[in-house]
């Protein structure tokens, strides 16, 4: 078993919104509830789920870009959850992020060279004299020529911008990168390029990825382990092979069956999930999936299912699942 890089326990995030003319009504959005998982050094852990499931919030909370409301994130023996900016700064180098939208991820007023130099000079990772060589190296790492350093973001295509965004994350020489829907906004023919680039860089620099995505087919191909989230909670977490071959949580199954398959014959007969994701402003009591779950029974409406390891390295939060390929309703 490999080493744990980040150990996450009970990570939660609530957003308090104010409504009403005088802000007197407080609404709480439970964006992330009790997220517990370890991220292992060198692996790609993917988080999937539909909008509002908390997968991006998880990534942001890990990096303290959103301050978590509770829980801990142990990195290098220290709890970094909720550290203020100054205390967090030394960790920022190690923990990086690549965002979804390649069009707004770069400062339009800075050349690519300036954008990449900023973290290098700020963290004193190279001297002014070493800088040009370092920039060329970074650009080469992401498959761009040194000439790109003089260009502005608007002169680049979406795929090229995303390469620059990856280079900017690499500039800090990180150990861990959150890829927040990093390929979702790209053209189909470019997605595979960027995906392959991320995998090459992982091999070269021993990176660990938290890969946040909604496209399960992509996730299947690149992940070591996959976590499925629903309305702010983890529903299932397992090695990719297990999860796709033997999904245990009813939501995981429904999600998998909703993924369109590029096969005209297979595609037309599938099970459908009824209804829509409830609002995170007012999530259902008990198991949050019970309103749409084909297996839902009484306990699901009141009791939050425990997060249990039902098979080696395969965790599920469902009253109905007791072991691999087993659903047990007699003893809930």
């Amino acid at each position: 078993m490999t080493q744990t890089l980040l150990s996450i326990k009970g990570l939660s995030k609530r957003f308090d919104l104010r409504a009403g003319a005088f802000g007197q009504t407080a609404i709480t959005v439970h964006a992330l509830d009790d997220f517990t998982a370890d991220i292992r050094a060198g692996e790609t852990l993917s988080l999937v789920g539909e909008s509002g499931c908390g997968k991006s919030t998880t990534g942001f909370c890990l990096l303290n870009l959103h301050r978590p409301s509770g829980g801990s994130v142990i990195y290098d023996g220290q709890d970094i959850a909720g550290l203020d900016e100054d205390a967090m700064r030394p960790f920022r180098r190690d923990l990086q992020i690549v965002f979804q939208d390649p069009y707004s991820t770069l400062n339009p007023r800075m050349t690519i060279g300036e954008a990449l130099s900023e973290p290098i000079l700020f963290h004193k990772l190279a001297t002014k004299a070493e800088l040009p060589a370092r920039l060329a190296q970074l650009l080469a790492d992401v498959g761009l020529t040194p000439a790109f350093a003089r260009r502005y973001p608007h002169e680049l295509s979406g795929g090229q911008r995303q390469r620059v965004a990856i280079a900017r994350a690499l500039a800090c020489q990180p150990r861990f990168i959150v890829c927040d829907e990093a390929i979702s906004a790209l053209d189909v023919s470019v997605q595979a390029q960027i995906l392959n680039l991320l995998l090459d860089l992982q091999d070269k620099y021993g990176l660990t990825y938290l890969f946040i995505a909604h496209d399960l087919a992509v996730v299947r191909h690149i992940s070591d382990r996959v976590g499925v989230m629903y309305l702010g909670r983890l529903a299932e977490l397992a090695p990719a092979r297990d999860l796709f071959a033997r999904p245990l949580h009813p939501y995981t199954r429904a999600l998998l069956s909703a993924v369109p398959e590029p096969d005209p014959r297979a595609a037309r007969s599938r099970q459908r999930l009824e209804g829509e994701v409830p609002s995170p402003l007012n999530p259902p009591q008990g198991c949050r999936f019970h309103t749409r779950c084909p297996l839902a029974r009484d306990p699901c409406k009141t009791k939050v299912p425990a997060w249990r390891e039902v098979a080696p390295d395969h965790r599920v939060a469902c009253h109905a699942v007791t072991g691999k390929d087993q659903t047990n309703w007699e003893t809930p």
Binding site: L63, L65, E85, M88, R89, P90, R92, R93, L95, Q96, I97, F99, Q100, D101, S104, T105, L106, N107, P108, E118, P119, F122, H123, A165, R168, A171, C172
Partner: peptide, 12 residues
């Protein structure tokens, strides 16, 4: 905007 969040993530 993401580029501002990215700048924060860089530790600036």
């Amino acid at each position: 905007r993401p580029y501002v969040t990215a700048a924060r993530a860089l530790g600036l």
